[in-house]
Design a binder for these strands. Sequence first.
DNA 1: CTTAGCACTCAACAGGTGAGAGTGCTAACA
DNA 2: TGTTAGCACTCTCACCTGTTGAGTGCTAAG
Lengths: 344, 344
Amino acid sequence: MRMDPRKQNILLAIITDYIATAEPVGSRTIARKYRLGISPATIRNEMADLEEMGYIEQPHTSAGRIPSERGYRYYVDYLMKRQELTPEEEELVRQSYHQKVRDVGEVIQRTGQLLSQLTQYAAVVLPPKAAASCFKHIQLVQMGAEQAMLVAIMDSGAVHHRIIDIPSGITAADLEAISAVLNAKLQGRPMESIRLTLIKEIYFELSKQRRILELVMELLHDTLVRGSENRVYLTGLLNILNQPEFRHVEKVKTLLSILEQEDLLGNLLASDVGKEGVTVRIGREISCQQMSECSMVVATYSFKGRPLGTLGVLGPTRMDYAKVVTVVECLTKNLSQALERILG
Amino acid sequence: MRMDPRKQNILLAIITDYIATAEPVGSRTIARKYRLGISPATIRNEMADLEEMGYIEQPHTSAGRIPSERGYRYYVDYLMKRQELTPEEEELVRQSYHQKVRDVGEVIQRTGQLLSQLTQYAAVVLPPKAAASCFKHIQLVQMGAEQAMLVAIMDSGAVHHRIIDIPSGITAADLEAISAVLNAKLQGRPMESIRLTLIKEIYFELSKQRRILELVMELLHDTLVRGSENRVYLTGLLNILNQPEFRHVEKVKTLLSILEQEDLLGNLLASDVGKEGVTVRIGREISCQQMSECSMVVATYSFKGRPLGTLGVLGPTRMDYAKVVTVVECLTKNLSQALERILG
DNA sequence: CTTAGCACTCAACAGGTGAGAGTGCTAACA
DNA sequence: TGTTAGCACTCTCACCTGTTGAGTGCTAAG
């Protein structure tokens, strides 16, 4: 059996209606609402075909049809017309990005808020990956007798800090000296480079303060490998509870149990860093069992052409893809531009 | 009517049972389970008295009794026996605080996780208040052509950072010079002091770089007044969904809508900073309408005897106060000690 | 190929019923 | 006077049942 324009129209109608109402849609409804010029009976025949082809399914015998994952996929790939933002929404976006910005985290957070506000689903934003950014400045500051604070400022605008133990007897001047050497060697270098021969260079120059240096290197490496960059900005949990698919607490629980595992969510997003354009993952296309009834729409934002992180929207499979895709695309651009503006 | 020991025992039994089962408890149940040596009929009489006194109430005519807010209050104040941690739980706490700590935020976060894990309710932790802490180090770093990053390291272990616009023409050396002056003047001073005459002093010394100085002062002030310190660490949302009072999504929604307003939650906690010991707020004692069906147990943690912030547990009024109070007290101590250890 | 008509299916809802838990009251008892 | 057994009463909840309505598939006519 092949897809023909009439089948396409019917599938489009079914999906559109289901996205709007969350109710299984019957042949009658389509005939009445979507004026395709054919009778319910004909539509029924076509629907039987569409079901056989796997695009729609029936929750039970005497109910209407709902789109299957395959149906949504077909819709997203071939049928969907993007739905532009309303003037009010555009205005909201413009305003949000023209407020005074205080740091990168704030822009990212604000983007998350916008995402969830505009789509009414949950939003996730993965901040710039630390490993890919370069050192701008490194500073060691004495805290207690045997503690020092290590602060690393990256060119992505991220600031990493951590407390380290230092051997007693190290003076503020020593720390200053070490900071100076670290700065000289690491400034402008990507975080990844600290694994390399660089380390030896520094060791040589600072053979006296070996112990503390080891700690610093360990910390920097730590930040690189599993550092705070796996933090995820999550907004709009409340929105998602308004979706009828989360009427039952059980569903909410399974969803929340996923979202509480930041690392899992982080990896999910991280796997899409660098991809061109907007990616749509529907249901089980998300490689995560418990999220099989959700969809994600994600895109990568960048700075100076370099992909930095990803942002996305998370909602039920019955998601308003037409709108969400537009919003995600729009905000990806805006975020990239904002970063350009902030970081020069 | 006066409270006598028998009434107390019955009230204690009712509350204990209701906390355990979340079901209205009847006279029969008490007679069977709690062996007070009196018959259901007698218990009924006493219950009628307790109801008249306002300690318990009936959801409907033919149901058992449930404690009223006043009943919980009496319980917490006079009847409750604290429930010590099990050896396993103590071990868990010990382990958590003996892991290697990387910064203050991390200890705080871990404390939140422990709180929610041990109590099975939601946990909130208010990080150290910025205004009360002293500057340890200030650093300005050039980012783009017209942007600089301002980093302030506080003695509480907090690191504040923000991006500011700078007039073009400012060199890295200029920034370095400004940093030096700021450090000289502000080091060891509490954040609050920047409002004072200090500002004039610095202005005098740096009259050349007026523009950028204004920005820096503005930022510092900003951080003081409404800065990131109102961030709240929130954990264990998932736990709270297991409580039967949140079986219906509506309840979850109202709760979440509160918890999403970080500032509101922050203020709620902030109002208790500095109070001695553990504070229990039951139902409408929390000055927040929509949280009238919840209780909070909070305490203040400190560093060098100075109160820094608060931590607490949020759950339904039917909360296991005996356990929660112990846990909160225990973790307050542990957190204070951990900070002592980290910050020297 | 399309469509009207019809019999059939099934979820959802409303109304009715019985069981069970719990109460308050009363009268008997220590 | 305080305690207790007994009893009638109330109310929720779970269960059943019949009804309604939406929707289908099939068939036969257009």
